[in-house]
């Protein structure tokens, strides 16, 4: 009699409870990819409900990064197809000659670079190429250059002589011998572009790790913020702090990434474009800001600036936070980061 109706109601009830539980707890599908790009390992983890769609998005994001990497490649073989494709190479080759038409993305990177060159009064400079080459950090055998040669190379550094024509889409290095080096901006810019691609594919949760340049989208798949550690600059595997981040980027510049030692003195690859020597105020600087391209630029700039000036600069900008480990090992951070940073007191460098 009624019990049949009742049992149907019961089954529906159980199905609804189970269904609700499954829907709420259905973990988003993860798709992760890794690829070597821009001299580093780039990994992208993205989450969504449909694995194929996520996979498509991740692959498109990698394609976008490859495209930008090709534009900014500073050291392809002379005369090769890669050199032809690289805007940086073509601009460098035409230095002192004539303006070169570049892709929109290259133009965007250069405009950004020049803006921060001016804002930091030369602490960030994409025309540092001649000095970088002299130190040879890109190659196998880096060395301390002779002061004479360094002085000559330094004379060729200065973004005031980088002429950008937005209307025509051209870039021009005024003096022969000048060279662009987008090492401190291209990776971040490409990361940000890749993230936009993920978003266009409908992905709302993702993490891009471009050789330690981190960009997160949305919240972590666990719910809540992503936990991003800041590497201990003097201990492998150690972490000095954990940042709780949502939809932002964290980029670190440190003196431990590429360096060599001569007579107990460490020479690392982040050069002060104004002196031509490695910057010495900090051991590591992490910039937290939404745009990974800007974070990349600012991490280099703030590393080069003296710690106090770096903190002032970050403080003067909206939405830019800094975690700075001085050469004395002292960790300082922007006050606005207070709620989002978890300091590991026992793991100070």
């Amino acid at each position: 009699m009624n019990s049949r109706v009742l049992s149907i109601v019961a089954v529906v009830f159980v199905a609804v409870v189970l269904g609700a539980a499954l829907v709420r707890h259905r973990a988003p599908v993860e798709y992760a990819g890794e690829e070597f790009l821009m001299d580093t390992l780039v990994s992208i983890k993205a989450y969504g409900s449909d694995r194929e769609a996520v996979k498509k998005g991740v692959n498109a994001a990698f394609a976008e990064m490859r495209r930008i990497a090709a534009l900014a490649d500073g050291f392809p073989k002379q005369g090769s197809a890669a050199a032809e494709a690289s805007d940086v190479c073509r601009v460098n080759a035409a230095a002192g000659g004539e303006p070169v038409r570049v892709q929109d993305d290259t133009m965007a990177i250069l405009i950004l670079a020049k803006k921060y060159y001016e804002m930091t009064h030369g602490a960030f400079d994409v025309t540092v190429g001649p000095v970088m080459e002299l130190w040879g950090f890109g190659g196998k055998d880096p060395r301390v250059p002779e002061p004479e040669r360094l002085r000559a190379a330094l004379a060729l550094v200065g973004s005031q002589d980088l002429v950008l024509d937005r209307q025509r889409g051209t870039a021009f290095l005024r003096r022969a011998g000048m060279r662009l080096d987008l090492g401190a901006v291209a990776k971040g810019y490409a990361t940000e572009r890749a993230l936009r691609v993920l978003q266009r594919h409908g992905i709302g949760q993702a993490l891009i790790d471009a050789g330690g340049n981190i960009r997160v989208l949305g919240r972590s798949p666990r719910g809540g913020a992503w936990n991003i550690g800041i590497k201990n600059p003097r201990k492998d595997g150690g972490v000095v702090a954990v940042l709780k981040l949502e939809d932002t980027s964290a980029v670190t510049s440190g003196d431990y990434y590429r360096y060599f030692e001569v007579a107990g003195k460490r020479y690392h690859h982040i050069l002060d474009p104004r002196t031509g020597y490695p910057a010495s105020g900090s051991t590591a600087v992490t910039v937290v800001t939404k745009d990974a391209g800007i974070a990349d630029i600012l991490s280099t700039a703030c590393f080069v600036l003296p710690p106090d000036r770096a903190l002032d600069l970050a403080g003067s900008m909206v939405g830019v936070d800094l975690v700075l480990i001085g050469s004395d090992g002292r960790l300082r951070h922007s006050p606005s980061l207070q709620d989002r940073i978890d300091l590991k007191g026992d793991e100070r460098p």
């Binding site: 609700a20 709420r24 707890h25």
Partner: peptide, 14 residues
């Protein structure tokens, strides 16, 4: 099992 399920729904915690 039912209790567990209800609790996880209620707390929205896995």
């Amino acid at each position: 099992l039912g209790q567990l399920l209800a609790a996880s729904l209620l707390l929205q915690s896995g």
